[in-house]
Design a protein around this nucleic acid. Structure first.
Lengths: 356, 356
DNA sequence: CGCTAGCAGTCTGGGAAAGTGAGTGCCAAG
DNA sequence: CTTGGCACTCACTTTCCCAGACTGCTAGCG
């Protein structure tokens, strides 16, 4: 006897259409949607009283909530979730907009940092929301070349270049004098044996092996320095997070409230929490945008926000994540299309600038 | 007949004391200061009526303003200016706080970017205001070492290392095949002749001269590539500006107003305007903090803000600027002491990590 | 001549009261 | 199942009023 069906099995066609319309209208207007508005603006073929009955049932099943007794309805997390997963028409970016994105990426130059900064700027600008970008960590990059440069008798500069075109430098201070020829031999040996290896794999054993045949053998303190240099170049613990477009938040009526604004800005400043959430969002490694709605973020004071995230790549290695953080009432279709296109262009551009 | 003295010649002792007290009190409470408050909280030895007369005169002379007829007074730009320049007691940072600053700088590592990011974080945290930091431009750095690395027959990676320990890379694609030996000879020649030169001085002529004696002569397209590489490493046009602690603005009652908040966040996003103002502030190259109060900033909607700025150095070269942007009602003494100490520690740390 | 006490006048900010209107739920009839 | 009608609810806005803070002015005092 299915008299009260909590979270019913399926929504019939009319209920689905009503939910779709309510989400759409609320996203557009930021005002709770009433039955009269629906019958006036959308062609439903039934009266507002009928809509009221349907809305009451959608609320009972958890898709809608009423801010207060005499207001219209707004979608709940479940309502948005259903909309995003099953009701929303798929959108894709207008081709001229996509072209503009590509053009603007091309203006960023070859340096990885620059490209990622440009991505942040573009994403916030086009989305009119807060853009959050996790920059590449070094450890997924491929070692290309190393140079040991003689600075003084007990001071050596080690420069590591990856195929991403990023150079990291590190000063080594061995406990014995070294001479330039010795450094050249070491550089050559390491380059011959290790070029093409992922940075993350360049641990102590690998380096010691690569230098085993060097004659005369290098002093242990120099080898230690080289190993430390690789460890430094790798630095997996340190991933920059970039932000852009915080001012757009002020345009949303839901953030006309200093407490909510403060929560978000604190999150931006703190970085770690947001970093975890963003990484969680794309853990599955899928290449479609992942969406987290309101309470799904599991963050205090963030029930009014949603996050759309997607990974980006260089070649076939996943490097980092793009994300849009905005009001829960966001145009999900457009945001997903936009972030997917941005990630595509970014991945493409990064792959293009990779060194041979 | 000096009957009405606009912006009178000097403030007598009592007026100066009253002005000082009003600025002090207003900074502490954010409430317009009335005559009764003054007599109660501060030992003035005269009645509130006398204070009222004095305040009326201070207002007539432009040091104070009244938000409305029945309110107390708040300082005008001129009032703050007088306070900062002549009335305020000089403050210096408590030595334990200064020590803490130094310790935290030490945790930043050797990379210039990292150190400057740390400075931004510390400055915003200690000042509880928005920190604005202009990062070093490349062109004031000293060329230390160059390496031309063979990637493929027509592809060469050029790595430039400065004494700041920053490496920049650039891909050169000459129109003829090159071989590794040729590259080594070119690298050696350039290093021998040019090491120690400012990057900004490495123009076409200098490079061509340095390579003039190379035998056999390098192909023109390779030389062009090297010149382009230096130009790229230099990139004077591109100076990063870092921000930190925007959320602290929300703590100030003067920014409980979305328009003002929006103005500031827009400024942060736009960067260029703020960059100019900050550079203006320290154009004189002095090493004491420069202060700009309210309207002196000459920025629309920024009349409620003040900016405290100071340059920082590496060795004896000025590299960039630290600044604090906050409410006009800020504790100037502390902010100036703090930013001076931060700049000192930053300059010291940068000088320490410079390569030999 | 400067200082003070007292007083009338002015303005803001907050809170109560009342009116407005959007929107609902329910019912009885089609 | 749908619909028109109706009573009811509740947030929001406007209006009004009052308390409080502070001033400027004046007259008197040392």
């Amino acid at each position: 006897m299915p008299e009260s069906q909590p979270r019913g099995p399926e929504l019939d066609k009319r209920k689905a259409y009503i939910l779709t319309t309510i989400v759409y209208e609320y996203i557009a207007t930021a005002e709770p949607v009433g039955s009269a508005t629906l019958t006036q603006k959308y062609n439903l073929g039934v009266s507002s009283a009928t809509i009221r009955n349907e809305m009451a049932e959608l609320e009972a099943r958890g898709y809608l909530v009423q801010p207060h007794t005499s207001a219209g309805r707004i979608p709940s997390d479940t309502g948005y979730r259903t909309y995003v997963d099953r009701l929303m028409p798929a959108e894709s970016l207008a081709s001229e907009e996509s072209d503009r994105l590509r053009t603007e990426f091309a203006r960023a130059g070859r340096a990885i940092d620059e490209i990622v900064e440009q991505a942040t700027r573009l994403l916030s600008q086009y989305s009119q929301n807060l853009a959050v970008v996790v920059a590449p960590s070094k450890d997924s990059q491929v070692f290309r070349h190393l140079q040991l440069i003689w600075l003084a008798d007990r001071s050596v500069l080690m420069v590591v270049v990856t195929t991403a075109g990023v150079a990291e430098q590190h000063v080594i201070e061995p406990v014995v004098d070294v001479d330039p020829d010795e450094l050249t031999r070491a550089s050559n040996a390491l380059n011959r044996r290790l070029s093409g290896t992922l940075l993350v794999q360049l641990d102590r054993g690998t380096v010691v092996d690569a230098l085993a045949t060097t004659e005369p053998p290098l002093h242990a303190s120099l080898i230690d320095g080289i190993i430390a240099g690789f460890a430094h170049a790798r630095r997996p613990e340190e991933r920059r997070i970039l932000f852009g477009g915080a001012q757009h938040l002020l345009d949303q009526p839901e953030f006309r409230d200093f407490k909510k604004l403060r929560s978000i800005l604190d999150l931006v400043e703190e970085q770690r929490t947001l970093y975890n959430v963003v990484l969680d969002s794309i853990e599955r490694g899928e290449s479609t945008p992942s969406v987290r709605i309101g309470g799904e973020l599991e963050l205090e004071d963030m029930s009014e926000c949603s996050l759309v995230a997607i990974p980006y790549r260089m070649g076939d290695r996943s490097l980092g994540v793009l994300a849009i953080l905005g009001a829960r009432r966001m145009p999900y279709g457009r945001m997903m299309a936009l972030i997917a296109a941005t990630a595509d262009h970014l991945s493409q551009h990064l792959t293009d600038v990779e060194l041979p």
